[in-house]
């Protein structure tokens, strides 16, 4: 079913609100997950050289300070016990002497902020647990519809058939999984609390990320110009048109044509930048926040669809 049809269905079937709201949010949540994954995919290779630089500087500073370095406890277990431990728990680690703060650069700040956002979205994912709940929610919506019509004997039969079918299905499993529909609602309510209370922070962290990314000038066009350089050119073209003496019609016209060309070039460049892609994380989160605050509002659905469109365009390039 198309996203739009899905939403129309939600508007038309308020009796299925519980199940569909959860379902609707899992779609929106999927978009948030895509947004952060895409941003991360683009930013990570961009900052990697700067991160390596920071690691080398930190190593030099640490050696000069005489910090203790050693294999982590995980290595001891790995090397000395025959039990399986995750290889990631074995690291070369160090403790900074005294109050020497670890070296922080804009690149390390970017990575940390990305990690914070990724962990946050990961936590939301755990709250949603969409993969396991979707099928259950679908079954539950059928049951709910039946509940609404219980006066109808045929519907009651349908419900009993449904229950019988569920029983057959659950024979392979120890516990029938219809119960988690109630859990899905609980997850939904709690995710709603987390999302609505974090929206301002997500925006702020994303803004901070964008500023660091612009400062480092990592997004470059084919002529190696950064966002700030491109922005300067676009702004200059705009200011030139605004300040142009319109009595010189031919000159004014040329200035306008130049502005149009700069704007077009800027937008096609900007939509490919990491700054834009990380911005989509905040936008999609904002759409999710609005949907959770005011489920079913037409404006929000249109707004969400627009955000989704930008995201799809960004992902598909």
């Amino acid at each position: 079913m198309s996203v739009f049809l899905r939403r129309v269905t939600i508007l038309l079937l308020p009796t299925l609100l519980l199940a569909c709201t959860t379902d609707r949010v899992s779609t929106e949540f999927g978009a948030l997950n895509t947004a952060i994954t895409e941003a991360d995919k683009q930013i990570t290779p961009l900052i990697e050289p700067k991160l390596e630089e920071a690691r080398q500087q930190e190593l030099t500073a640490s050696a000069q300070a005489g910090d203790p370095w050693f294999l982590s406890e995980g290595c001891r277990v790995l090397l000395n016990d025959s039990i399986a431990v995750p290889s990631s728990s074995c690291r070369v680690t160090h403790i900074p002497l005294g109050d020497r703060p670890p070296l922080q650069t804009e690149a390390t700040a970017i990575q940390r902020k990305l990690d914070v956002l990724t962990a946050y979205v990961g936590a939301l994912e755990l709250l949603m647990d969409a993969s396991s709940d979707t099928a259950i929610t679908e079954s539950y919506s059928a049951a709910l519809a039946a509940f609404g019509e219980l006066g109808d004997a045929a519907k009651a039969r349908e419900l009993i058939d449904f229950v019988a079918k569920r029983q057959r299905q659950s024979e392979k499993q120890a516990v029938d999984k219809v119960i988690p529909a109630a859990i899905a609602t609980l997850r939904y309510n709690r995710m709603r609390t987390v999302v609505t209370s974090s929206n301002a922070d997500v925006k702020e962290v994303v803004r901070e990320l964008q500023l660091h990314l612009m400062n480092l000038g990592l997004d470059k066009d084919s002529q190696q110009r950064t966002i700030l350089q491109r922005r300067k050119a676009l702004t200059a073209a705009n200011e030139k048109v605004l300040g142009f003496d319109t009595s010189d019609a031919a000159g004014y016209r040329a200035a306008i044509v130049n502005l149009q060309a700069e704007q077009k070039a800027f937008m096609s460049f900007f939509q490919k930048t990491s700054v834009y892609k990380v911005g989509l994380v905040a936008e999609v989160h904002d759409a999710l926040d609005k949907a959770l605050r005011n489920p079913g509002s037409v404006d929000d659905i249109v707004g969400y669809l627009e955000t989704l469109k930008s995201l799809i365009e960004a992902v598909e390039g």
Binding site: E106, L126, V194, D201
Partner: peptide, 24 residues
């Protein structure tokens, strides 16, 4: 922003929310 390399307040709050969500 170039001078703000420590964890920002928004970052800290997001970490708290993440922990809270995981506890939930």
């Amino acid at each position: 922003q170039a001078t703000q390399l420590d964890q920002s307040e928004a970052e800290k709050r997001l970490v708290t929310q993440t922990k809270r969500a995981n506890a939930m």
